[in-house]
Simulated scan of single mutants.
Amino acid sequence: MEYSGQKFDVIVIGGGVMGSSTAYHVAKRGYTTLLLEQFDFLHHRGSSHGESRTLRATYPENYYFGMVMEAAQLWEQVQSEVGYKVYYKTPQFDMGPSDDKSLRCVIANCESYSMPCRVLDPNQVSEHFSGKMAVPENWTGVLTELGGVIKPTKAVSMFQTLALQNGAVLMDNMEVKDIKKDDGGDIVVHTSNGAKFCGRKCVVTVGAWMKKLVKTVSGLLLPVQPIETTVCYWKIKEGHHGEFTIESGFPTFASYGEPYIYGTPSLEFPGLIKVAVHGGHSCDPDKRTWGPPASLESLKQWIEGRFSGLIECTGPVAIQSCMYSMTPDEDFVIDFLGGELGKDVAVAGGFSGHGFKMAPLVGRTLAEMVLDGEAKGVELKHFRLTRFEGNPKGNVKE
């Protein structure tokens, strides 16, 4: 089987949020674009499905601050083009032990970037949330206005819709097995069903399958580990459902320390709130267990201590499985593949459970890389492949 159509300017491999955003940005600039997905579009086997993702700028690493602020503007711009919302604004609340270094860095970064934030002691936390949330005596809370919830499956569909409207070709159930350069210097993409597609440039955004595909294509072993993680929803007690919604001003939130816990207001499932642990267990993305987490005790204790008894903490009432693609330093990989493929193939992966919020910016960056040879306005030194050469841990974190 061989596709008889044109040679594409850019072939994007992977139809999750990063690949779909890239296809949209390339097509919007007027270049012929092909988006290939190994499963059905909007499938639930990767990292771009589900009910909610958090948007927050409160990172300990200062290089993410500006990226999130620009990504937030891009989410609003793109959703205005499609005509419906995928990004729902609400404040972000971070909390943790007062001496936690990561939380102290968050506060310092807010000050450096002139981002308004309120640093709250335990009494102020209780007062601000009218008793709905409490923290221990030796903890600090940080409240910022830039936050919100992104609807992931809806967002992927948005980028694919806009890519189509701008002339892109979208094909699913096309598992890519190899990428080669022909004698004329073009990129040829081979799929498991015998199809071949030709393009000038290529972008690889295959999430948890990145390590497998890159090794096949170039022999390079990326330190990107697939992680199976579990998202938990907990029941809000009767009479309090309206107190934990975006409409009531309840924030997205994150708790520093071990374990790192995050959550979103009640939105997708009325009467339920999302509270989950960041992390999971290593897996082969093609041989997942789809099972519940080994232990929820620390999460139950955290919920009991933080929500003043207003959330049922005996156990989650709904559980969903998802995937991380984790790098050792939890920073992204955004770079040209190099080697024989040089700057004709760009790769983006290892988004480590926190990259979804950056999708419109990552897509634009990848489009600029393959169309212009470099990205404008985004510093990529922390995301280079070369950071792992002779240094398996990657970027040094203070």
Rank of each mutant, 00 (worst) to 15 (best):
F253Q: 13
N395A: 03
C202W: 00
V156N: 10
R384W: 09
V135H: 08
Y64M: 00
V347Q: 09
Y31A: 12
E238S: 15
E247W: 01
G5L: 09
G19R: 10
Q301K: 15
V347S: 02
S321I: 11
H354N: 11
M369E: 00
V82H: 08
Y324H: 09
F253L: 14
V106N: 07
R288V: 11
D121P: 07
L341N: 06
V149K: 00
K177P: 03
L371M: 06
E398G: 13
L35Q: 01
M133F: 07
G5D: 11
P292N: 05
I227Y: 04
L220S: 05
S248P: 00
T153L: 12
A195N: 14
K101F: 10
H190A: 08
F332M: 03
V142Q: 10
G257E: 05
P97A: 08
K181A: 08
G185L: 10
A57D: 08
D172R: 07
F39L: 12
A208L: 02
I107W: 10
K28Q: 15
V125A: 10
A318L: 14
P259W: 05
D100H: 13
L42T: 02
A23E: 07
F269A: 06
S321M: 10
F65S: 08
M369H: 07
K274M: 03
V125F: 10
K212Y: 08
Q73I: 00
M210H: 05
Q320T: 13
V203N: 10
L143D: 11
G14H: 01
T229A: 15
E243N: 11
S192F: 00
V317L: 08
S218M: 00
M358V: 01
I311R: 09
V370S: 08
M95W: 01
G349M: 06
P328M: 04
L143I: 06
V106L: 12
C198V: 14
L222I: 04
Q79M: 14
R384S: 12
